[in-house]
Amino acid sequence: SAVVMEEGSPGEVPVLVEPPGLEDVEAALGMDRRTDAYSRSSSVSSQEEKSLHAEELVGRGIPIERVVSSEGGRPSVDLSFQPSQPLSKSSSSPELQTLQDILGDPGDKADVGRLSPEVKARSQSGTLDGESAAWSASGEDSRGQPEGPLPSSSPRSPSGLRPRGYTISDSAPSRRGKRVERDALKSRATASNAEKVPGINPSFVFLQLYHSPFFGDESNKPILLPNESQSFERSVQLLDQIPSYDTHKIAVLYVGEGQSNSELAILSNEHGSYRYTEFLTGLGRLIELKDCQPDKVYLGGLDVCGEDGQFTYCWHDDIMQAVFHIATLMPTKDVDKHRCDKKRHLGNDFVSIVYNDSGEDFKLGTIKGQFNFVHVIVTPLDYECNLVSLQCRKDMEGLVDTSVAKIVSDRNLPFVARQMALHANMASQVHHSRSNPTDIYPSKWIARLRHIKRLRQRICEEAAYSNPSLPLVHPPSHSKAPAQTPAEPTPGYEVGQRKRLISSVEDFTEFV
Results as ranks from 00 to 15, higher is better:
Val473Glu: 15
Gly301His: 05
Asp336Ser: 12
Val323Trp: 09
Leu387Asn: 04
Thr328Cys: 02
Gln293Phe: 09
His375Arg: 04
Leu302Gly: 15
Glu233Phe: 08
Tyr355Ala: 00
Ile353Val: 04
Cys460Arg: 08
Phe350Asn: 03
Pro380Tyr: 00
Val354Ala: 01
Ala327Thr: 04
Ala481Lys: 14
Lys342Val: 07
Pro475Phe: 12
Asp361Gly: 06
Leu329Gly: 04
Tyr355Lys: 00
Gln429Pro: 01
Asp295His: 07
Pro414Ala: 13
Val495Leu: 10
Glu494Val: 09
His432Asn: 06
Cys305Ile: 06
Leu422Ile: 09
Thr328Ala: 02
Ala483Gly: 13
Ala265Arg: 05
Ile377Leu: 08
Asn269Ile: 01
Glu488Gln: 07
Asp318Gln: 13
Leu449Asp: 15
His474Pro: 14
Tyr465Leu: 15
Asp246Ile: 05
Gln259Thr: 02
Lys480Pro: 12
Glu461Asn: 10
Cys460Gln: 12
Gly347Arg: 15
Ser268Thr: 08
Pro294Gln: 15
Asn467Gly: 07
Pro222Asn: 09
Ala417Phe: 00
Glu270Pro: 04
Gly258Tyr: 08
Gln241Gly: 07
Leu455Ser: 09
Thr312Tyr: 06
Glu307Asn: 13
Arg339Pro: 15
Ile353Gly: 00
Asp357Ile: 00
Gly496Cys: 14
Phe324Trp: 02
Arg339Lys: 08
Leu286Met: 10
Arg344Gly: 09
Leu239Pro: 08
Leu399Asp: 06
Ser231Leu: 13
Pro476Asn: 15
Ile440Lys: 10
Lys406Leu: 15
Val376Met: 01
Ala424Val: 04
Arg275Cys: 00
Val304Gly: 13
Leu239Thr: 07
Phe373Ser: 11
Asp217Asn: 13
Ile407Leu: 08
Lys368Thr: 13
Ser435Ala: 14
Glu360Cys: 09
His432Met: 09
Leu455Thr: 07
Gln429Ser: 07
Leu455Met: 15
His431Cys: 09
Ala265Tyr: 02
Asp308Glu: 13
Ile502Trp: 09
Thr379His: 04
Ile250Pro: 01
Thr485Phe: 10
Leu280Trp: 02
Asp317Ala: 02
Leu470Asn: 15
Gln259Phe: 02
Glu397Lys: 07
Met330Lys: 05
Ser504Leu: 10
Leu239Gln: 09
Asp395Met: 05
Ile502Asp: 15
Asp246Pro: 04
Glu218Arg: 10
Ile459Lys: 06
Val430Ser: 04
Leu387Phe: 04
Trp315Val: 03
Phe371Glu: 09
Gln391Asn: 06
Glu257Pro: 12
Ala251Asp: 03
Glu360Thr: 10
Glu270Gly: 05
Lys394Ser: 14
Ile326Glu: 05
Ala463Met: 14
Ala464Phe: 09
Gln321Trp: 14
Gln241Ser: 12
Gly282Trp: 00
Leu449Gly: 13
Asp439Ile: 08
Lys221Trp: 14
Phe279Thr: 00
Arg458Pro: 13
Asp291Phe: 12
Ile502Lys: 13
Ser352Pro: 01
Ser352Gln: 05
Ser352Asn: 04
Cys340Val: 12
Phe373Thr: 08
Asn356Gly: 00
Asp349Cys: 08
Ile250Thr: 01
Cys385Ser: 13
Glu270Asn: 07
Pro222Trp: 06
Tyr276Gly: 01
Ser268Cys: 07
Lys249Thr: 14
Asp382Asn: 04
Ile266Thr: 03
Gln321Cys: 12
Arg498Lys: 14
Arg234Ala: 12
Pro471Arg: 06
Thr328Arg: 03
Leu302Asp: 15
Arg454Asp: 15
Gly496Arg: 09
Gln484Ser: 09
Phe373Glu: 07
Gly359Ala: 05
Tyr276His: 01
Asp318Ser: 08
Lys363Trp: 06
Leu267Pro: 03
Ser268Phe: 03
Glu288Phe: 09
Phe232Glu: 08
Tyr493Lys: 15
Ile319Gly: 05
Leu267Met: 07
Lys368Ser: 14
Val304Glu: 09
Lys342Asp: 05
Glu384Arg: 06
Lys363Met: 09
Lys296Asn: 09
Ile377Phe: 01
Asn372Trp: 03
His271Phe: 15
Val236Thr: 10
Ser244Ala: 13
His474Asn: 13
Pro475Arg: 13
Phe371Val: 07
Asp401Phe: 03
Trp445Pro: 07
Lys444Met: 05
Asp246Glu: 13
Val473Ala: 14
Pro331Asn: 06
Val354Trp: 01
Glu228Asn: 08
Arg234Ser: 14
Val323Leu: 12
Gly369Ser: 11
Ile287Arg: 08
Asn467Leu: 14
Pro442Ala: 07
His248Met: 14
His316Pro: 05
Thr366Met: 05
Pro414Arg: 00
Cys340Glu: 15
Cys385Phe: 10
Tyr493Asp: 15
Leu381Cys: 04
Asp334Ile: 14
Pro226Gln: 13
Phe279Trp: 01
Thr485Ser: 10
Leu390Val: 15
Thr281Phe: 05
Ile446Gln: 10
Ser229Arg: 07
Tyr441Lys: 11
Gln457Met: 08
His316Asn: 15
Pro476Trp: 10
Gln497Asn: 13
Asp295Met: 04
Arg498Pro: 14
Lys480His: 14
Ile502Tyr: 11
Thr402Lys: 07
Phe350Gln: 03
Phe373Asp: 11
Arg500Leu: 09
Asp303Gly: 10
Tyr274Ile: 08
Gln391Ser: 07
His248Lys: 02
Tyr493Trp: 13
Arg498Tyr: 08
Gln391Arg: 07
Glu288Ala: 12
Ala251His: 03
Val297Asp: 15
Arg454Tyr: 14
